[in-house]
């Protein structure tokens, strides 16, 4: 059976996975330059070894309350389609192999995250692992939303 490797991380006490191919690196928290007048979950940009990289907060992206960064906080740098983006997560846990056959379609809502952002769920031990669909999480819908928000700000 086709197995795929996933990087597991925690956001607001839920475990999520993204395919390792999409992950470029995992960084410790670093200074973020805030970009004014963008959506709240867009935290700003970081200097990732000379490349200006946008960073989003996954907690806020999924509608969870923000928390202060601590020693476990990580920025997972992903490259999805044209987007090169860092995602702030509470902690990065592990890399696991998951059998694609064992991935079930997502229910409408998992742990507060809408199904459209999910690739599926996989059982793992006693828990459930939520596999993210990053294309959607970072999709164009975002840009539209961003523009609308801009309009709202400008009145």
């Amino acid at each position: 059976m086709a197995e795929r490797q996933y990087i597991l991380f925690t956001v607001a006490n839920e475990q999520y996975g993204v395919p390792v191919e999409q992950v470029q690196s995992v960084e410790r928290m670093m200074p973020i330059a805030h970009v004014p007048r963008t959506l709240p979950f867009i935290r700003g940009v970081i200097n990732l070894r000379g490349v200006v990289t946008p960073v989003i907060d996954l907690r806020e992206r999924f509608g969870f309350p923000p928390v202060d960064a601590d020693a476990n906080t990580r920025i997972v740098i992903v490259q999805v389609d044209r987007f090169h983006v860092g995602m702030i997560v509470d902690m990065v846990d592990d890399v696991v192999s998951i059998d694609e056959a064992g991935v079930e379609p997502p229910p409408a809502m998992v742990g507060g995250v809408q199904a459209e952002y999910l690739h599926g769920v996989a059982r793992r031990g006693e828990g459930v692992l939520i596999l993210l669909n990053l294309e959607r999480v970072l999709s164009h819908a975002e840009e539209r939303q961003l523009r609308e928000a801009e309009k709202a700000v400008r009145g």
């Binding site: 946008p54 987007f83 090169h84 801009e150």
Partner: peptide
């Protein structure tokens, strides 16, 4: 600023 923030 990167493609993701292209509309800023």
């Amino acid at each position: 600023l990167g493609e993701y923030l292209a509309d800023v």
